[in-house]
Simulated assay, not measured.
Amino acid sequence: MKIKKKLLLGFGLLFIVVLIFGATSVYYIEVISETSNVTLKNNYKTLTFTREMRSVLDENDLPLPSGASGVFNQALQKQENNITEPGEKAATSSLRQAFTLLIEPSSGLNQKQQAERTARLQLKKIEELNMRAIEFKNGYTHLTVNKATLYLGTMVFITFFILFILIVNFPGFILNPLRELADGLDQVSKRNYGTRLKFSASDEFTQLAEAFNTMAENLGDQENADLTKIIAAELRIKILIEEIQNAVLGINEKQEILFINHEAKRILNLGEKSLIGQSVLELSKNNPLLKTILENDDVEDPLKINQHSNGSYFQQKSLEVVVPNLKTDLDSLQVAGYSAGKIHFLKKVNS
């Protein structure tokens, strides 16, 4: 899976969770709001109407004055248009019958008193029905709030869990392959061309690892090819030096012998053992002729060397090996050089 798809999947999942969280929050807010609104709007109005009708009965003697009857009738009409609870309609109908008898001119005082008691009983019943409804709706509201709290808390936990996974894994998901790539490049810079990267996922990092492995393999092949060429060139030079009739001695910048042919060993009386890598300064301590050659680069007069009671003359010549070194600055590309050693020649001349 590509990195882009992984990112889209992770953040898409997080987006969906947040969307569900928001939708759930809005839903329960609407439910709680609606429940609270119904409780306040309908039942509270009914309690207001019953209070008005009870006040009329409490504040007036029988028979009721026409003004008080009008107030009672208006409150009763409002109540008849605001019936919401089971049993409230029957109680309101009974209240209407009692009120009709209460204001009937032909009714006696005893009948009016009985109608008043009935009206009060129905008012009490209506109030009890609405009070129970308020308690029930209040409990339902609390239950809804608790449920919403549980659901929203669960959604918050899931959202936090997904965020935690992203925060913990995302840096490693990006940084770990980059760290391995940096380590691989460090190994290649140290000429460890056998270094290989391998990522299990099929993403851009895998493609990068394949490109890195191809590069390392090509560099290794190139180095092997260059090394083969260098070895071949070194062998050719070695053979050429051995075939030269003149004495040849090569030393590096550390004053160590790089090459010396058979003729140089014979003239300098250094024996036949291998001298490659040995210090010429140490060898010259017990070899005055070698010391003379090292201390005198070029001399015009031939150098006389006694060999087996016979004296021969040799012309000495020394060449310093200067290796170019490219140094780049901000203004131009300059070529500088440093000494990589010397080559000393001894050519036999006629006395």
Rank of each mutant, 00 (worst) to 15 (best):
K4P: 04
K6L: 12
V18W: 03
I20H: 03
I20P: 04
F21C: 11
F21P: 04
F21R: 15
A23E: 00
S25L: 08
V26S: 14
V26M: 09
S33C: 05
T35R: 10
N43P: 03
T46P: 07
T50H: 04
T50R: 07
R51H: 09
R54C: 05
S55V: 08
D58M: 09
L62C: 01
P63F: 01
S66P: 10
A68Y: 01
V71W: 00
V71T: 12
Q74K: 10
Q74M: 11
L76W: 02
N81H: 11
E85W: 01
E85C: 08
G87M: 08
A91K: 07
T92L: 06
S94W: 05
Q97A: 10
L102W: 00
L102P: 05
I103M: 06
E104L: 13
P105R: 13
S106Q: 06
G108D: 07
T118W: 01
R120A: 04
L121V: 08
K124Q: 15
I126G: 02
I126C: 05
A133D: 03
F136H: 09
Y140A: 13
K147R: 15
Y151D: 05
I165W: 05
N169H: 10
P171N: 06
G172E: 04
F173C: 04
P177L: 06
R179D: 04
D186L: 12
K190D: 09
G194L: 12
R196W: 03
K198G: 06
F199A: 06
E204W: 02
Q207A: 10
A216S: 14
A216E: 01
A216P: 09
N218C: 06
G220F: 07
E223N: 12
D226R: 14
L227P: 02
K229N: 08
A232G: 10
A233E: 08
E234V: 03
L235D: 04
R236L: 11
I239P: 05
I239T: 14
I251T: 03
L258F: 02
I260F: 00
H262F: 05
H262I: 07
R266E: 05
L270K: 02
S274R: 10
E282R: 03
E282V: 06
L283M: 06
K285L: 11
L289Q: 03
L289A: 02
L290W: 00
K291V: 02
T292V: 08
L294Q: 08
N296Y: 00
D297S: 13
D298Q: 11
P302K: 08
I305G: 03
Q307F: 07
Q316N: 12
K317M: 07
S318K: 12
V321R: 13
P324V: 02
L326I: 13
L330G: 14
D331H: 12
L333P: 09
L333Q: 12
A336E: 15
G337A: 10
G337L: 11
K342R: 11
H344N: 06
L346H: 00
N350G: 14
